[in-house]
Design a protein around this nucleic acid. Sequence first.
DNA 1: AAGCACCTTGAAATCGTTTTCATGTATGTG
DNA 2: CACATACATGAAAACGATTTCAAGGTGCTT
Lengths: 341, 341
Amino acid sequence: MQPTIYDVAKKAGVSIATVSKVINKNGRIGKETRKKVLKIMEELNYQPSVLASALTGKRTETIGVLIPDLTNPFFAEITASMEERAHERGFSVVICSTNDSEEKEAKYISLLLRKKVDGCILASRFKQVGLIENMVKQGIPVALTSQDIPSLNLNTVSVDDYKGGYKATAYLGSLGHKKIAMIAEKNVRSSHERIKGYVDAMIEMGFSVDDTLIREVEPTVTGGKQATEELLSLKEPPTAIFAGNEILAIGVSRAARSFQLDIPNDFSVIGFDNTLLATICDPPLTTIAQPIEQIGKQIVDILISEINGELGNKQRIMLPPELVIRKSTKELSGGKRLDEG
Amino acid sequence: MQPTIYDVAKKAGVSIATVSKVINKNGRIGKETRKKVLKIMEELNYQPSVLASALTGKRTETIGVLIPDLTNPFFAEITASMEERAHERGFSVVICSTNDSEEKEAKYISLLLRKKVDGCILASRFKQVGLIENMVKQGIPVALTSQDIPSLNLNTVSVDDYKGGYKATAYLGSLGHKKIAMIAEKNVRSSHERIKGYVDAMIEMGFSVDDTLIREVEPTVTGGKQATEELLSLKEPPTAIFAGNEILAIGVSRAARSFQLDIPNDFSVIGFDNTLLATICDPPLTTIAQPIEQIGKQIVDILISEINGELGNKQRIMLPPELVIRKSTKELSGGKRLDEG
DNA sequence: AAGCACCTTGAAATCGTTTTCATGTATGTG
DNA sequence: CACATACATGAAAACGATTTCAAGGTGCTT
């Protein structure tokens, strides 16, 4: 087995208290003693047990991260960013994929409490507000990302979804599109904000907001594809679609292709997130970029600040989304479609 | 703070030993007492501390997973599968992204030891064999996936890379391609196996194996693109490329497009892995599929068996790859290119 | 030489569990 | 009724650290 503090103490001929002080650089320890202890620790390749140390009231140096689904590139990328930052700051990350199941949310929260994580990051789509309140009551720091729960006073870092929705729609409008549809993810707060941005932009540009042009679906390629097929089958189909994320946008592309529509010449699509997918699909997606890496780093930093008790007030940070123009959007030309002037 | 076993014991009017026995269902406890203790635990919402429990010799119920890069869909998908299975079996997962840095490998291994994880899964590309030997010596179970280190006697689950390479190449051959190139990831064992499979298939089909047709590059889109551009600039360029993974394959597509070659009509590409990317890029990739989900589940199961001491001999499992035909490969037609008969 | 302050060190309590072993009580037997 | 036998329970040690506080040693002052 691994050596313990007792092994070090014995071999160095000192007490475990002394060794502990050397490890933690506190208390006053003579130069000679310190040197000797350090040497022995080196020799034995001694690694203090985080368990024992945490039991006495210190950190576990672990944070829990709850995300809906790691196979979604958006969450994979944000998780990667959080993981990197956490390790830079001396914390490890326990990943829990909830798959949007409320049962799992509850199970994982309880698991993380039993493991005494120092704090938790809840990424988008967390459903049970009561569970969060519970953690907060127990005094464990919680931070939210990509979702804001206004009723709770929590540290939050997210992108400005409203503005993103607005920007996407306004951009399509600026290209001459008037009949613009939106396909959004179902039952997600951030999605609602994006829709609001879409609606406001439409109104501001003087276009009619037609409920049949707003679809809320499961966030899958098929979901996006089916919704698009329905939209394209309308009497007056849209000339552009704003997809609430890139998985959906890919579904849109698929559907357009099956309708023999060329993107971007016959039809425009804009996505949201700017993950690997946007660059990889064909044509590369014009999209509203979230500063994914920055979100991940910042949420970790804030959580750790709170863990350290350095934070006075809760922070709610909203980062600006950015339009990234690629090849899936184009000016509306009178082309294949008939449009009212 | 959270209630401890002492709180439960006091409120139930019993000793902590009794409570402990109720929790762990061992020892003999009277029916009445058990019921009372359970009720109190419920009332206080008591959750035993994994820390304290682990300190006495029990599990931490945690396994460490080292992967190179979470933003790579292959690793994201395999991690998701491992995470899911681990949780099903009562273990949490600590993710460590090494980014192929030897320094990080060492740092994370030491970190995981300090945290007393019950076992470790090392995914592909782990470089420092010495570190692994060290863990094994310390008695902590280690399992490898997507890489086999023959010199070490370890539990391993991976795909048969040789066979995959062979299949990919043979399939291209069966389509009439003779000048087939391969672009592989640099410095990775599994990559070497795929190359061997490629070489053997070429020889078996009676084609010349030309070293200039085999490229080893960084596993990035750019890496794949540049290599392809070089290959396409040869006097006698290949008519098909076998890409060692899908990121590379996407690079190949990009390069082909920039050479005005239509895939699959003018040029065929086959990938390896069968991640989300293969279905999402354009055209959808013909690829050699790894049973990613199965690999993830199986490696976790094996590791847990070893943790439980249920495993007699180490297991080396090699799963068969499968050809998935999509739209990026096609029979060689005399078309745009000149080919020797 | 005694008194004092200042360092350095270690003994012991603590954290929240598990586990062993002894003790106490109820039951059954002759 | 005395005694063996189960069974239920709890006291205490152990796990590997941290932390407090008392004690011992050193050198300085007077």
